[in-house]
């Protein structure tokens, strides 16, 4: 598969997201919508997967996000960035889904346990099933669990900045809050995560060093 310099050059002048969305809005252009989905499907899937701690649910939510974008295409205001609009809708769907899950967890656990803050976390663990395949390794699962213990608004900021590499200014635009608030949420998220992860990773490091001493196999891996 070869990509000629001309093809690369012409792709530089490809339709912007805003132009594509404008076509979807005014002409119901299916090709333009397909282009948007191609461009944004994976980032939105990643966002949803990290917000919910479940890759498959993330994929479903990403699909729902695009369905909603299309269904409400007339509501899109062309003034702002399309990507901010898209992230916002996906995040709102994530919040709805988390709320729904929390309700379900509360109902199913209310006779057995207290209503604790880590309800989602437990639920996510019990419901994961095939998600075990998606999370590579024990450490990944530990990080995922710690992230799920964060308040949702902190998690959203952390996922957008750390994993999706949005600038603080862009996140402020998505969440419609001041940039300073985004940064303070980020600081709080990292601090809470440090508290959650430090003992785990310290233990992990200790056991690794114990395991690594007898032979060289560990180093080779």
């Amino acid at each position: 598969m070869r990509t000629s310099p001309f093809a690369a050059l012409s792709s530089l002048f490809a339709t912007t997201d805003e132009q594509a969305m404008w076509r979807v809005q005014t002409q119901e252009d299916a090709a333009a919508f397909a282009q948007l989905v191609r461009r944004w499907e994976q980032p939105i899937q990643r966002l949803c997967a990290r917000m919910l701690g479940d890759v498959h649910r993330g994929e479903d939510l990403a699909q729902e996000t695009f369905a909603r974008i299309f269904a409400r295409r007339k509501n899109y205001e062309p003034g702002g960035k399309f990507s901010s609009y898209l992230w916002r809708i996906a995040l709102n769907l994530c919040y709805d889904e988390l709320r729904r899950l929390r309700r379900r967890v509360t109902i199913s656990f209310e006779d057995e346990t207290d209503d604790n803050a880590s309800g989602i976390h437990e639920h996510a663990d019990t419901q994961l099933g095939p998600d075990g395949q998606a999370v590579a390794g024990e450490q990944a699962a530990l990080v995922r669990d710690a992230l799920l213990k964060l308040p949702e608004n902190y998690r959203a900021v952390l996922v957008l900045r750390h994993y999706e590499d949005l600038k603080f200014r862009e996140i402020a635009d998505v969440l419609e809050i001041p940039e300073g608030t985004v940064k303070s949420r980020m600081a709080e998220a990292l601090t809470q995560l440090s508290r959650l992860l430090a003992p785990v990773f310290a233990e992990e490091a200790k056991s690794n060093s114990r395991r690594a001493t007898p032979g060289k196999e560990r180093l080779l891996i």
């Binding site: 990643r46 990290r50 998606a134 590579a136 450490q139 995922r144 750390h162 601090t191 995560l193 990773f201």
Partner: peptide
């Protein structure tokens, strides 16, 4: 502390 957490976060990569 924050840097350590940022590094630890890299452990969770999605396929």
């Amino acid at each position: 502390g924050w840097r350590g957490t940022m590094t630890a976060l890299q452990a969770w990569q999605l396929p």
